[in-house]
């Protein structure tokens, strides 16, 4: 008996099948990358540690309060969110060495091989339980933005690069030592009662 030839499979519809699958994946795909503001929470203090609170001079603290009506009180002055960035930058840098703004102390930076006057400012952020999350993030964003802008300027001053991101890891470390991001969040209080 003669062997029967198996007929060739027509490949023409392969494209259709592939298209079908392609459309399925196109529809189900969600390419959302999660973005946000990264923060490090402070660890819970030990019982013994709690008693030895570090005293920080008042001129070194930049107090930002947000109340339940989403209003800002910065260093005992009312302020709009838009003005916060400039005020924060002025505080952190203290270029004019004002009495009311933070002290500076000389610190040896290995990467630059010289001593630099490093300001000792700390930002203290406090919010009410009734504060809305939106304004809280807006304030956090402004504070981080102030630090980023200062670091960018420092990157230009010390290394001649346009932005902090362009520096090598070592150089970034040096800038971080000069302007460490110090944002402290106090335990929340419930005043607005909402």
């Amino acid at each position: 008996m003669p062997r029967r030839e198996t007929p060739e499979i027509n490949g023409g519809s392969m494209a259709d099948i592939a298209f079908l699958l392609l459309i399925f994946f196109l529809v189900t795909t969600t390419m959302d990358v999660d973005t946000g503001i990264l923060r490090q929470l402070p660890p819970i203090p030990d019982v013994q540690q709690e008693k030895t609170d570090i005293d920080i001079k008042e001129r070194n603290i930049f107090v930002v309060l947000i109340n339940a009506q989403d209003k800002l009180l910065v260093e005992n002055r009312f302020m709009k969110v838009e003005d916060l960035r400039e005020a924060t930058k002025e505080f952190i840098r203290n270029e004019l060495n004002k009495e009311t703004l933070p002290e500076k102390e000389p610190k040896f930076i290995e990467e630059l091989n010289k001593e630099i006057m490093v300001p000792k400012g700390v930002i203290s952020l406090q919010n009410d339980r009734g504060t809305s999350y939106g304004i809280y993030i807006e304030v956090q964003n402004e504070l981080v933005a102030a630090y980023n802008e200062i670091r960018n300027e420092a990157a230009f001053e010390y290394f001649g690069k346009r932005s902090f991101e362009d520096l090598t890891e070592n150089q970034q470390e040096a800038i971080k030592k000069i302007y460490p991001q110090r944002i402290s969040e106090a335990e929340p209080k419930n005043i607005g009662d909402r």
Binding site: D34, T35, L38, G130, T131, S132, Y133
Partner: peptide
């Protein structure tokens, strides 16, 4: 959600501190 009050967020943060999950990200 951006219209949430901070009270619940603060409670979550406290709880995360107790669990020593200190790296957080405020999604935005």
């Amino acid at each position: 959600h951006q219209e949430t009050r901070m009270g619940i967020v603060t409670d979550i943060k406290q709880e995360l501190r107790k669990a020593s999950a200190l790296k957080i990200n405020y999604s935005a």
